[in-house]
Design a binder for these strands. Structure first.
Lengths: 227, 227
DNA sequence: CATTATTGATAGTATTACTATTATATTTGC
DNA sequence: GCAAATATAATAGTAATACTATCAATAATG
């Protein structure tokens, strides 16, 4: 994580907030503290009232940035996928072999890093934990179609699309790139959660990169051996 | 679904309810109507008050059966996995080949059936839709560990364990049966949801069984080609 | 037929998820 | 440097949620 572009900013669809959070101190505090708080107490227990108390601002002020806590969740997960796309581009730049790029990408998705990296005020490892245990709640709702139209999942889809292109390079006739990728991404997130809370639903290993290994093999086998 | 055992009843851990729902008319109405209602309006919008209005019983009476709507969700998903285990046993009985049994099992998990089958008052196709879009919310919470200890996920784990045994028969040295299975199960559920709401995250096909085919191949490849 | 368990009817509470209003700072444009 | 615009603070209020409590009416059971 050395060569960060200094003038780089992750772009988030305008519909995912009322007022641009990065445009003010309060906005930045809302985002960074909400990530910390959701990580600590979980999305269900998280409220704008509690966040207001934490950052010492009235609840009503937070509502000027986000119309609901769901919108905030969508915002921070979108930010995550924007960030991941940026990392993907960096990590796979100047590498000829599509297979190597695929491997790098899967490592990116499946690796849990605990170092205290802070980008744009966001503590990445905490954000990653939120994405693992909370992000599916942003689409598993009755208003998916509505928020989807507003661009809620654009960054996620774009990340998947970029990876699908790599798969197409490896095997142009492979028919299920998006299916494979959503399986790998959501699967890998689940394994991290299961390893901690429901070990009988996974196979935790001593080595730190067993999830990476598993999904890399699973993916490459499927891509290469399809008729 | 012909040869149902007439004296068969799916067993649910005692901790997952206050009063046995199958022991009374009201209890059965709570379960069957909640499934219908959660399917219609989603778990977030579902409340005991609304359910009470629907079944014309006071909210407080529902609280005598379930201590919260989360407990109810855990109950009905547990019921689902109990039912799935029952089907698994039936479908794989008297079949010698472990591989064929595995294929039957994956078909069971990945097939969406719309026929109006009702078992113990439960409309299976609606329950399946709930499991697809709501069940992960029953474990993706901060109190997973607590409810897990109470047996909330016992039926799910038992179903997975039974399938893991089949995998071990196919390849005794395969190291990731549970990981593979949770990937397939949760992945397959997601693909159904994505096909309807977020098509760019899957690869919908014309054939009705493409999800089955995909996950069967994915699974068997991984099981057989592992070192 | 009396006891016990179950449900209905009703009320009440703390919290949530917001919206509204007005006052006070702070920034910016001229 | 001052007015105008903008952002935030402070406070209040509302409908709904997620429960708990109480007591009467009814049904089941021994």
């Amino acid at each position: 994580m050395k060569n960060l572009l200094s003038n780089f900013k992750i772009s988030i669809n305008q519909n995912l907030f009322i007022k641009e959070p990065s445009s003010s101190e309060l906005g930045k505090k809302i985002v960074s503290n909400s990530i910390e708080m959701i990580d600590e107490i979980g999305f269900e227990n998280f409220t704008f009232r509690k966040l207001g108390l934490k950052i010492d601002s009235p609840e009503a002020s937070i509502y000027r940035y986000f119309e609901s806590k769901n919108q905030l969740l969508v915002y921070i997960t979108s930010w995550y996928w924007g960030w991941m796309e940026y990392r993907l581009v960096l990590e796979t730049a100047n590498i000829d072999s599509a297979e190597t790029r695929f491997e790098k990408a899967i490592a990116l998705i499946t690796t849990v890093n605990n170092d205290k990296l802070i980008i744009e005020g966001v503590e990445i490892s905490k954000l990653h934990k939120i994405v693992i245990s909370e992000s599916s709640k942003s689409y598993l709702t009755k208003d998916v179609d509505k928020v989807n139209k507003e661009g809620a999942f654009h960054n996620y889809k774009q990340f998947v699309a970029r990876l699908a292109d790599i798969i197409k390079e490896i095997n142009p006739s492979y028919k299920f790139p998006h299916m494979l990728l959503s399986t790998i991404i959501e699967g890998a997130h689940l394994q991290v959660f299961f390893a901690e809370h429901l070990p009988r639903l996974t196979n935790k290993q001593k080595s730190s990169n067993y999830i990476t290994t598993f999904y890399t093999n699973l993916g490459l086998q499927s891509i290469k051996n399809s008729k």
